[in-house]
Computed example of a mutant assay.
Amino acid sequence: MTRHIPLQGVENFRDFGDYAAGAGRMKKGLLFRAAHQAAATDADLEAIAALGLVAIVDLRRAQERQREPSRRWKSFAAEVIDNDLGGEGDDPWQTFLRGWDHSEADLRGYMVESYRRKPFTPRHVDLFRRYFAVLAKARGPVLIHCAAGKDRTGLLAALTHHLAGVSRDDLVEDYLATNDPERYARIGEGIGRYLAGYTGSVPPEAAIRAALAVEAEYILASIEAIEAAHGSIDAYLETVLGVDARTREAIAAHILA
């Protein structure tokens, strides 16, 4: 089954529902994830509008939103969840790139460490809390996205899958669906030029592919950090993100068939 929704100017757009979840199944057409929509075409906007989104969670930093503002469709009325917390100073990713030696090992080391921090960053905690509060309202489809739709978005999708009762294997499988060979063919050259703006030269193809990819060890690093700090993902959801028993029940009623 293909989950990707092909669009011209929005990468990595896909449905992350329709997974077996305990004794039930996640609904299809309710939960979507993607990269930014700054380059969305008019046709893309029509396709996204047809989904009937009631909320969009933009996980990007303020500077990212300003640099690549989202395009919206006519009569746009969805709730937009974002924040400017921790917006001062350089983006950690850009800081890393300025010193990156183009080695895959250096990149993977940075990514693992960043994933260990993601669940506890105040900016993420605020956005994640508000996202789950929206799901508990049971009003309609929701889109979550960041810049590339793979890291911050991947973590929030994984937390949603865990809450729904999706197996760890399926959770990781959905996360790894970002590794689409056709995606590299479309944007690999442009990403190489983007990286060169920070590193001083275009990285080798293997390094560019690594920068575009996700690895199971990344999302597992977040999960392990959560479990080390709170004992379980469920405890983290409740004590950090405010997803108590009543909220879980409301979310389950909304996203499970």
Rank of each mutant, 00 (worst) to 15 (best):
L53H: 06
K118E: 09
S222C: 11
G29V: 03
A250M: 03
D169M: 02
G197H: 07
L107T: 00
F120K: 09
A213Y: 03
T41N: 04
L156E: 10
T239K: 15
Y184S: 00
G197Q: 12
L59S: 05
W73D: 03
W73H: 15
G190R: 14
L85Q: 09
R98I: 01
E227W: 06
R152I: 10
A23G: 09
Q63N: 08
Y110M: 01
P122I: 09
L155E: 05
A21K: 04
A20T: 10
Y218R: 10
V54S: 09
Q8N: 13
E227Y: 04
L7V: 09
P204E: 08
I226N: 13
S201G: 06
L45A: 02
R14V: 08
I226T: 11
A164C: 08
L156V: 15
G200I: 06
L107W: 15
Y131R: 02
V166S: 13
F32T: 05
A50F: 03
I144N: 02
T153V: 07
L212S: 08
N12M: 07
L53E: 03
H4V: 12
D15V: 06
R72I: 06
V172P: 04
R3N: 09
I56C: 10
D234H: 08
A49Y: 01
G188M: 05
R116M: 11
G140Y: 08
Q94A: 09
T41P: 04
F13T: 05
L256M: 10
L163S: 05
L59H: 02
D126S: 14
L30E: 05
A147E: 04
A148G: 13
H4P: 00
H102V: 02
L171V: 05
A77T: 13
L155N: 11
R246C: 04
K137L: 13
H102M: 04
V166E: 12
R116Y: 05
I144Q: 03
Q8G: 12
A207W: 01
E104Y: 03
R108C: 01
Y110F: 15
T2K: 10
M26Q: 15
E64T: 07
R183P: 01
R67H: 12
E205Y: 04
